[in-house]
Design a binder for these strands. Structure first.
Length: 805
DNA sequence: AGCACGCCGACT
DNA sequence: GTCGGCGTGCTC
């Protein structure tokens, strides 16, 4: 009976965002399964593209001429049934194309690359063949093909002198290594030895060696033999030639953590920790999908709770998924988990090469790894039979992807937990207001860890009012109190960590005579100074140019740096304390792979007194000799027009405060600010999350913000500002009639950076409580504005956006 | 996305 | 007359 496959094709547009029917060729009838990738002809020219099989049916719903599947890419489905249905839900939830969702769930190497080649089928003038085809009869189309050559090719195509073929390249390469195994039995080898000449010492040795390998299950890697024995490549080759041994290819995993990991052991739990573990494990064994919110002060041992929960779940024969913000996925963290569960752990994060990520993914897929630790996209790890999903630092904004599909890993985690009937742990010292409010309403189960494991008091936080400090001294980033603190630690041989809250701050260049600021030609934003590359860069579009020596506007030479970059602060501190050994950690010094870990190791080895950095130093670092944490500018985020500014400031301050004085030494925190009376700073000083939560909830209630309201953001962009504005007003007007009186439309307003990459952005934010028609209307708007994309419009939807600026 | 088709202005 | 510009529709 004829088989039909429903296929999602790799053409990310609104119109092709639906399954297409394909004939399954007889040869593939028993091969093709849902979730496999296939290569299919698509469109008029039958160009070859990749697609995902959704279902295989024996009935067809399509009445036209079917095309047949060309080939299968996978031997086993790349996407299992769970993830297939997750992709469907995700597409609905985030208004993204299903193909984009499917590709997001897989390692990037599994995304197809397409090439197009022209082959000569007829005689053409030799000079043309020489210039166009380089004398060959085949040519690959690519972007840098000169326009005139492209014209010539099109002409040839019209004359029917070339044929165009499409290729789908699969970049996912399995790394293979050569290994050997004995090809004969012990006795046969002995016989072979008899046939040798007396002088063939090495060959005899090889036979003996092979005999020792006979009982081994797996083939031995050639690499290992060459390293550990005296046999050479040539010896092995002769062995193979004489039929004593077989050379086989084995799949190798690129193991990014090949170096031995220190095993770590279970720690004794405090009674609070134990209660937490028990509650979750209890839930795991009842097949319920509860969400636990663990609100635990810094140092309360949340990680140990996670690890012991994972341990219990593994013992139930299930698997575990642990999500960590990218920035917290430090070598320290990985070591800790690997140390506990060894080779059962797969790690997924952006520091791995594409190939390494693919290998880790395959280890999970083949059930060799049963614990996955990773950043946001690890939430799609193909684990089966999940027993618990953990999300550490659940308040972190990096769990939300800021490109399509704009999903929040927390939502995906909860979806998967319902599929697997397993608990979710959301852990944080400073939970997001959304999660904490859900716990209040008993949607989540709240567990509070109030005791620190070492029973030590939280460090004292001292606020320094910079307005005051600046009155008595000249402008500086360092108050006398902070400087004194740093010097004191240096004398005691202890260390300091300094945080530069960089949000909304960076160094730019301004002319002191005319006030000219160097701007990006494509975006409405000033260029940022980068000392390491000696250039000015745009952080939005990547535009780069030389640092001007004279002002382009008034030709003055008085063009100077402004703002507070880490480099500038480092220079100032060095000047103030010449003998200080300072390590700077920011985007520039950690760009290279492994640089982050190297810097941290240096600091851990006491090669520096001071670690100076941006947000990235706030998370997860654990150095016993750090007894002072200084926050250079606590309140830059507070000035931003974002209702989450206070929450972010509170979270950041609490986070860094926890970095001071672990182990046996007392810690101190010095926070410099221009707004020390601000409630976020005050509650952070008191280490009072619950107080902050109550206060902030009241603020959100008054302003009508989440978690009291749901939000959705519509962004419209166009190269012409007036058109972008007009379209956004049109959309707002369409929305109004279907919304109830409870819903509010904010805007349209231009984005705070109105122009990015030569496009103007306008946005609308809809705040609502319950709008049954909203989702359908938004989907409809995406559908109807489809035509406008032809005229340069881009319309994007962001469900529950984290960025409002 | 990328291709064909079809309608208009500028050319051999 | 036709070549080739782009606007429009469609892809199982």
């Amino acid at each position: 009976m004829p088989q039909i496959a429903k296929v999602i094709v790799d053409v990310p547009t609104m119109q092709t965002n639906r399954p297409y029917d394909y004939q399954v060729p007889v040869t593939l009838v028993d091969v093709i399964q849902p979730g496999m990738r296939v290569i299919i002809p698509f469109g008029n020219g039958d160009r070859k593209i990749q697609g995902f099989v959704l279902q295989v049916l024996d009935q067809l719903s399509f009445t036209g001429q079917l095309k047949a599947i060309e080939a299968v890419v996978d031997l086993t489905p790349a996407v299992n049934p769970e993830l297939l249905s997750l992709s469907d839900w995700l597409a609905q939830q985030t208004y993204a194309f299903q193909i984009t969702c499917l590709q997001t769930m897989l390692p990037s190497v599994m995304r197809a690359k397409y090439t197009k080649t022209a082959t000569l089928t007829d005689e053409i003038p030799t000079d043309l063949q020489a210039s166009l085809f380089n004398g060959n009869d085949e040519l690959t189309f690519d972007q840098n093909l000169a326009p005139d050559k492209l014209k010539q090719l099109m002409q040839l195509q019209r004359q029917g002198k070339i044929s165009v073929t499409y290729h789908v390249d699969n970049r996912a390469q399995v790394k293979q290594l050569t290994a050997i195994e004995p090809a004969l039995s012990f006795e046969q080898l002995e016989e072979a030895r008899m046939g040798l000449r007396k002088s063939a010492q090495k060959q005899s040795q090889l036979i003996s060696y092979l005999q020792t390998l006979i009982d081994q299950e797996a083939p031995t890697l050639l690499k290992t033999i060459l390293e550990k024995t005296t046999f050479t490549r040539e010896n092995i080759r002769i062995g193979a030639e004489k039929g004593w041994l077989r050379q086989v290819k084995v799949e190798a995993y690129r193991n990014p953590y090949a170096n031995a990991v220190q095993p770590t052991h279970k720690m004794t739990l405090t009674s609070e920790q134990e209660t937490a573990v028990d509650a979750v494990v209890q839930s795991a064994s009842t097949d319920a999908s509860e969400v636990f919110l663990i609100e635990g002060v810094t140092g309360s041992g949340k990680t140990e709770v996670y690890l012991q929960t994972i341990d219990a779940v593994l013992q139930q024969g299930k698997t575990a998924l642990m999500l960590v913000p990218e920035i917290a996925l430090t070598p320290q963290m990985v070591q800790r988990v690997k140390g506990r569960f060894g080779d059962l752990v797969a790690v997924l994060h952006s520091g791995l090469s594409e190939g390494e990520k693919y290998d880790e993914w395959r280890r999970i897929e083949r059930k060799e790894a049963r614990v996955v630790v990773g950043a946001r996209s690890a939430v799609f790890a193909p684990l089966e039979d999940i027993g618990v999903i953990i999300m550490d630092e659940e308040h972190e904004a990096s769990y939300k992807q800021d490109e399509s599909p704009r999903y929040h890993a927390r939502d995906v985690a909860i979806w998967r937990s319902q599929y697997h009937n397993c608990p979710v742990i959301l852990g944080s010292a400073t939970p997001s207001l959304e999660s904490r409010a859900r716990a209040q309403k008993d949607v989540y189960h709240l567990i509070r860890l109030t005791q620190r494991v070492n029973q030590q008091a939280l460090p004292a936080v001292e606020l320094v009012d910079m307005r005051e400090a600046m009155r008595v001294q000249k402008a500086s980033n360092f108050s006398p109190a902070l400087l004194a603190g740093i010097k004191e630690r240096m004398q005691k041989g202890e260390q300091s960590v300094l945080l530069l809250n960089r949000r909304g701050f960076s160094s730019f260049i301004m002319c002191r005579d005319c006030g000219f600021v160097l701007q990006c030609p494509n975006c409405d934003i000033s260029l940022t100074l980068h000392m390491d590359t000696h250039s000015m860069k745009c952080h939005y579009c990547g535009h780069e140019e030389a640092i001007p020596k004279i002002c382009p506007s008034c030709q003055s030479r008085q063009i100077r740096y402004f703002g507070t970059g880490t480099q500038k602060v480092e220079a100032e501190l060095q000047e103030l304390i010449p003998e200080a050994r300072i390590l700077r950690m920011d985007v520039d010094t950690t760009r290279k792979k492994g640089a982050h870990a190297k810097l941290l190791k240096k600091f851990g080895d006491h090669e520096a007194d001071i670690l100076l950095g941006t947000q990235m130093i706030a998370k997860g670092l654990d150095f016993p000799d750090v007894t002072l944490v200084g926050v250079i500018n606590a309140d830059t985020a507070l000035g931003l027009p974002d209702f989450r500014a206070s929450e972010r400031t509170f979270q950041l301050l609490t986070q860094v405060s926890g970095r001071a004085g672990r182990a046996d030494k007392v810690g101190q925190v010095i926070v410099q600010s221009y707004n020390s009376e601000n409630y976020a700073i005050q509650f952070a000083k008191q280490h009072d999350y619950e107080g902050f939560y109550q206060y902030e909830m009241a603020v959100r209630h008054r302003g009508g913000y989440p978690p009291y309201y749901f939000t959705v953001k519509v962004t419209v962009s166009h190269p012409e500002e007036a058109l972008a504005a007009k379209k956004s007003f049109q959309i707002a007007k369409q929305m109004r009639p279907i919304l109830s009186d409870q819903a509010l439309i904010l805007g349209p307003t231009p984005k705070s950076i109105a122009r990015i990459n030569n496009r103007y952005f306008y946005q609308i934010v809809i705040k609502y409580k319950q709008e049954p028609q909203l989702q359908a209307k938004l989907a409809e708007i995406l559908e109807t504005t489809q035509i406008d994309t032809r005229h340069g419009f881009k319309i994007g939807l962001d469900n529950e956006p984290l960025q409002f600026t």
